[in-house]
Design a protein around this nucleic acid. Structure first.
Length: 581
RNA sequence: GCCCUCGUAGCUCAGGGGAUAGAGCAUUGGCCUCCGAAGCCAUGUGCGCAGGUUCGAAUCCUGCCGGGGGCACCA
């Protein structure tokens, strides 16, 4: 068996092993036929490609099945059975399962292979300077971070970019407000995270005080003109805000660092070149006083060509210019092979247009994958945008605190011998899991209803449930006093619950693949929940520590693999797996 | 008006053209002298409507109905 594909250091997933063999057999009958391989509960996988091929060749499906089977070599891997109108049901052999599981025991990566090194720039989170991080930033931050973790694990060089709003006309009033307050007072207010209060106060003055308004306008001019003192004051706002964002990221256990926070202003010096080069490429058109590009295929409500405004009538740059500059920077200087933008769905047309222009300008080679990873809204129980009862946006940090308190209260009722400090830390881990998992277990493209009660209820399809499943497993190893030798494990899988669990364990790489290929983390969370359910079923049906050898070692090995799979899978979603809870 | 997106069980959601459409919650009923009951087992109901493509459609296409979003200088 040594040297077979599935025993290589970089393991090929079971799906890919089967697909390779099937593809050869189908190709032998008719080149280029898709075997249509799917996971199945009839056997372990099913290949559905026979029917289509039989139809196109005018052959009876059953006869076609025989032709393909004549070329199909799955010896030692799976048993094949022709069923129904021509399905090929594949059942993995005991020997294959045993080989796989033993290989997983010795594989830190649990069968997930590393890809050739590529660079991905993932744009996510993107709060605004001098504005609170609220639920509107939750999805971008959580989804983007999960994708970043998955990509890193697959061997990518990931450059994270939190494209914060740190430029534009509001900064005139914000800086003037800072001047009014005095730097020390302003910094104090910002450093405790009262960003919204600061912003609101500036806004109120701007709307009610003509003098202040005029000062603000002049301040914008000074800022854009590079006045050193103005830039210094602006930098205070940025630095204080970024420091605060870093606190929120840490509280959420998000991997973004201050180095990843690269605001819009970073691209300011590149904007003139964007305009110059678009003009040189013959793409720039003046329209209504603005400099625009009209990418093909976009129309406005009157059916006329829709412009991407690069430079506004007032000489200011539109945000499209910044996005275009960022693409150039990320392709040319960061050497990105992939660009991902984890930004809300309402921006989809904007990104389509920006990408189209970047392609047309040849700034975005065909070899670079560029995608808008769009997501839906977070809704409240009333199915409208999630707000507090009084109609305010909900601060992320408040949300986390609320969840932490509830988790701590639940822990307190379980009579643990935890110190209050340990309990608080654990409550934090559970709260983060609850909030992140709730987000990551929904299809990101759809809106979802935010319901803290449900996500932290610790019952059902929740983050805490997965953490609990992991903690139970770790508990087994804590209680096991007799040593065990993983290398001695042989997987007989005599009980249905054992085999069902084993099937899921070897499918972990497929789940990671699916999440990454589709940029849908919920493919992974769905897998993990399924795994946890199989585990608890196994756990009820199969005693571990009290089992006689060799079953005890086999079951301990299944527990070990499941615990590691849960821990690794959760970590790829940015969720911790405590040892006990 | 055009474009995008969504419509699956009472509620919240999965379903990569395949066989009897699945979870969780809620309901009802079982299971802790036994490795953690935050658990397990059992329990009823459903693909918005109408066409089409296909051997086969919740899935792809068209139309309609309904929700959400976008459509020139805010980012």
């Amino acid at each position: 068996m040594v040297g077979t594909r599935w025993e290589n250091a970089t393991m090929t997933s079971t799906y890919d092993v089967l697909l390779g063999r099937l593809q050869s057999a189908f190709d032998a009958v008719f080149e280029g036929t898709d075997p249509v391989l799917r996971p199945s509960d009839r056997g372990d996988y099913q290949a559905n490609g026979i029917m289509a091929l039989a139809k196109s060749q005018g052959v009876a499906p059953r006869d076609m099945a025989q032709r393909v089977l004549a070329h199909l070599d799955l010896a030692g891997i799976a048993e094949v059975e022709v069923a129904g109108p021509g399905f090929l049901n594949l059942t993995l052999t005991p020997g294959f399962l045993d080989d796989r599981l033993r290989a997983l025991l010795g594989d830190e990566r649990l069968g997930v292979d590393s890809m050739p090194e590529r660079t991905a720039v993932i744009d996510y989170s993107a709060p605004n300077v001098a504005k609170e991080m609220h639920v509107g930033h939750l999805r971008s931050t959580v989804i983007g971070d999960a994708l970043a973790r998955i990509y890193r694990f697959r061997g990518y060089r990931v450059v994270a970019r939190s494209h914060v709003g740190d430029w534009g006309t509001p900064f005139g009033m914000l800086i003037e407000h800072l001047v009014d307050l005095g730097e020390a007072t302003a910094m104090a207010a910002l450093s405790i995270g009262d960003l919204d209060g600061f912003y609101r106060a500036a806004r109120v003055k701007f709307e009610s005080d003509e003098t202040f308004r005029e000062r603000s306008r002049q301040r914008v001019v000074a800022l854009q003109g590079g006045d050193p003192e103005t830039r210094r004051l602006w930098q205070i706002l940025v630095d204080e805000s970024v420091a605060y964002f870093a606190e929120v990221y840490a509280a959420l256990d998000v991997t973004l660092t201050t180095a990843d926070v690269v605001g819009e202003s970073y691209y300011n010096d590149m904007l003139d070149d964007v305009v110059t080069d678009l003009a040189a490429a013959g793409l720039l058109v003046e329209s209504g006083g603005a400099l625009c590009v009209f990418p093909e295929g976009f129309t406005n409500r009157d059916g006329e060509p829709l412009p991407l405004i690069v430079k506004k009538r007032d000489e200011g740059f539109g945000y499209a210019a910044t996005d275009l500059a960022a693409i150039r920077d990320r392709v040319d200087h960061l050497h990105a092979d992939e660009l991902l933008y984890v930004v809300g769905a309402p921006q989809s047309q904007h990104f389509e247009m920006v990408f189209a222009v970047a392609r047309a300008a040849r700034w975005l080679p065909a070899s670079v994958r560029c995608e808008h990873v769009a997501f839906g809204n977070v809704l409240g129980p009333d199915r409208k945008m999630f707000k507090t009862r009084s109609g305010e946006t909900v601060k992320l940090i408040d949300l986390l605190d609320e969840a932490t308190q509830r988790a701590a209260a639940a822990l307190a009722q379980r009579s643990h011998d935890l110190s209050s400090e340990e309990r608080h830390h654990l409550a934090t881990q559970i709260a983060r899991a609850a909030i992140k998992y709730a987000d990551l277990s929904n299809d990101r493209q759809r809106d979802y209803v935010f319901d803290l009660d449900r996500m932290i209820a610790f019952e059902g399809d929740t983050g805490p449930y997965l953490q609990y499943a992991h903690a139970r497993l770790r508990s087994i190893f804590r209680r096991s006093n007799a040593p065990w030798d993983p290398g001695a494990a042989t997987f007989v899988l005599g009980a249905d619950a054992e085999r069902d669990l084993a099937r899921a364990l070897i499918a972990f790489p497929e789940a990671v693949d699916a999440a990454m290929a589709t940029l849908h983390p919920h493919r992974l969370s769905g897998y993990l929940f399924d795994l946890a359910q199989r585990l608890t079923t196994f756990y009820e049906a199969c005693p571990v520590l009290s089992a006689a050898e060799p079953s005890r070692t086999e079951r301990l090995a299944l527990c070990e693999l499941t615990a590691r799979t849960l821990r690794l899978g959760l970590s790829l979603l940015g969720i911790e797996a405590p040892e006990q809870m």
